[in-house]
Amino acid sequence: MTAPVAALGRGTARQISQVGALARFFRDTVTSWRTLPRAGRRVARRIFANQVWFTAVQAVPLVIVLGSILSYLVISQAVRELGRLNATALIGTLMVVAIVRELGPLLTALIVAGRSGTAIATELATNTVMGEVHALEGMGIDPLHYLVLPRFLAGIVSVFCLIVLFDNVAIAAGWLAAAAQGMSSARYFDIVLRSLGARDVWLTVLKGLVFGAIVGTVPSFEGLRVRGGPTGVPVSASRAVVESILAIFLGSALFVALAT
């Protein structure tokens, strides 16, 4: 009779324990900066640069394409429909609130989670399964220093930069869409810039940092706690992406709840 309740309780306790383990991992990663040996910083910087190259630079075309298509579609439809109601002034709010502040950070973080989160989790899970993490420990190299910290920082920098890119591309594509619907450039930029406040900029910046930290932490966490040998690697990658996406959506909802 009580078995289902007990099973539910066990499952919940396991989930809470995992969140706690993830929180401890995040804290250890952040504080590991203080103990990184001076010589190790050179190596960590090189890994950081490689990760930024893969996570940010190589994702630029994808972000440009998605940002411009999304913005073009939304703004061209909005100009047409709102024009009928003589309410084209609202496209500024639409652009800033819906695209720059909400969809830009959300979609960018999802792109990075899907693209680089999988790669990070797979790489670290393989490192673990192949005994490389054990070997690093044996050499006196903290895996947090060598594997996690550079990827964590690269995740933050990459997501932040890509969000800035996405938002700028979206504004530019919106301008093209508005122009195609007959709106003058001066009016478009006047509407958009009047709707854009300092609070929107700060919220976007903050989201970039938080989403970047999620993408930099969750895949490393899942990669390093892989179980079951080589067959655990894809499981680990899958869990990393699912958990990252969930955390990004929860984070986004939390931002909306706190900011409104």
């Binding site: 040996p37 192949m130 005994g131 490389e132 070997a135 050499m139 190299i141």
Partner: peptide, 21 residues
Amino acid sequence: GGGLLQNLSLADNVALPLRFG
């Protein structure tokens, strides 16, 4: 199994402890 890092060359593997520590 040796524990060599697969994404580094043999030389970089050998140099890693020196470079890091």
